[in-house]
Computed example of a mutant assay.
Amino acid sequence: MEDKTITKIPFGQLGIIVHESCKELGQKVDDYIVERRKEEFANSCSEYHLEEIKDTYVIDSEIVRFANGEAKGSLKETIRGKDIYILADIGNYSVTYNMFGHENRMSPDDHFQDIKRLISAIAGKARRIHIIMPLLYESRQDKRNSRESLDCAMALQELENLGVENIFTFDAHETRVQNAIPQTGFESLYSTYQIIKAMNKVDAEICFDKDEMMVISPDTGAMDRAIYYASVLGLDVGLFYKRRDYKKIIDGRNPIIQHEYMGAEVEGKDILIVDDMIASGGSVFDIAKELKKKNARNIYVAVSFTFFTNGIEKMNKYYEEGYIKKLFSTNLTYVPQKFKDAEWFEEVDMSKLISLLIDTVNYDDSVSPILDSTNKIKSIVGK
């Protein structure tokens, strides 16, 4: 999947605009594309291919911030007729700006506004505009309960109205939000293959065998994801049901009273808990403790995005006490260095897949092989 050869003529000259929030990931993506194209087109007689061999495809861009907090997007080179890909991480809270002498951390709202500024700076001169937003903006506010806003749908419609042709994200909280933009391309990719590959490489004790391991969904919303993992790995699947107190609302949500387990016996088995993200980590901690009470062996957690909004002190404690052995998470959103340095954390690099996605779309090839990694996963399990 990640080694596919590109042979078609490009739709337009490739240009990648990397927002400040995504510099590290963007550099890796650019390096992969440069390396791939130099290898594939070095002996090509096609003038189109030879023109596409460059040392970098990143467009020099900047967000200029004024002292009162206002800003503007600026492009330092021409993008006329190019196939543009804007890469931004709306979850990167390490990016700051100065406002009236105070240093402020950028919120998802600030990052999304910058994306729109960059699109505005393009001013219709690009041939196509694609957004690669690994962490989908406002993805947790995808549906309406009572009198609430529909933030994710509104944001997607804004991008559509600005002329964006395709929106790419990873492990969207609810993929049906694409119904808000039926005439615009929307794809949600998954990190399943890369995570399983990392698990197979990092921990020799992991055995993807039905008698040795189970997949657990932390709630009903993540059940489809857990079923996919279980199906391709040939494992049993279990579910934790969240009993909530619907009489109360704390921090905008009904508090969880208890996690109820439904599934086969977990005693003596390794457990793989899969979800799209870890926010505070509360649910994972409660589930890990319940599974250990049922005499589960080793507990692994696999997610696309890791936040730990309340810090990692509790995670450190749960690791030291043997509740959780390893957390596998991607570099699709900002990961603080202290997370990376922790013994329990294993970062899964997704830059090669993103580079292949950009190459594939730029050459107007089908992205279906990238979306479906079942055969690749089965080859790992078979080995």
Rank of each mutant, 00 (worst) to 15 (best):
K378P: 03
Y319N: 13
K247Q: 14
E165R: 10
G73C: 07
N43G: 00
N161G: 00
E321K: 11
G185W: 00
S188E: 06
L136F: 02
Y363H: 15
T374A: 13
C22T: 12
Y57N: 12
D60E: 15
R128Q: 10
I119T: 09
I271P: 02
P336H: 09
S146K: 15
S21E: 04
R36P: 00
E77F: 11
G12T: 07
K38V: 01
N161R: 12
Y57K: 10
L159R: 05
I196T: 06
E160P: 00
L233M: 12
D364S: 12
V232D: 04
S280R: 07
T184Q: 10
E39S: 14
D270L: 02
K292Q: 07
S21C: 01
D286H: 05
E321F: 06
Y97L: 11
L156G: 03
E35I: 04
I256S: 08
E39T: 12
A342C: 06
R176M: 11
E24V: 14
A123D: 15
E267T: 14
S188M: 05
E52I: 04
K317P: 00
K201P: 00
D89E: 06
M223L: 13
Y261K: 00
E346M: 10
N316I: 06
E148Q: 15
V95W: 12
R147M: 12
S44H: 10
V301F: 05
K4M: 14
C207L: 12
Y48N: 12
H102C: 09
M133Y: 00
I271K: 03
E62M: 07
R243W: 07
A42K: 14
P182E: 03
H130D: 09
E174I: 00
K378T: 03
D114K: 11
I354H: 03
F339L: 10
F208N: 06
E290I: 04
K28Q: 15
R80V: 05
F307H: 13
D151A: 15
H102Y: 11
A67C: 11
D286I: 03
G163D: 02
D276Y: 03
F66T: 05
L50M: 13
N295D: 13
S61D: 10
S366N: 09
M1K: 08
S283T: 15
D30F: 13
F345V: 03
A342N: 02
F112R: 08
E158D: 14
N104G: 00
T56W: 09
Y228L: 04
H102L: 12
A88L: 14
K294T: 02
R297P: 02
S61P: 06
A71I: 02
T175E: 15
A42L: 10
E51G: 10
K326F: 12
K325L: 04
K338A: 08
D372R: 08
E346V: 15
A153F: 02
Y229K: 06
Q258M: 01
I131Q: 07
S351F: 13
V361T: 05
F328V: 01
E347S: 10
D30I: 10
A296I: 02
N298R: 14
E39Q: 14
L235R: 05
K378I: 06
K325W: 03
M277D: 09
F345R: 05
F112I: 07
Q337Y: 09
N43W: 00
M99V: 13
L135F: 14
E160L: 08
A302K: 05
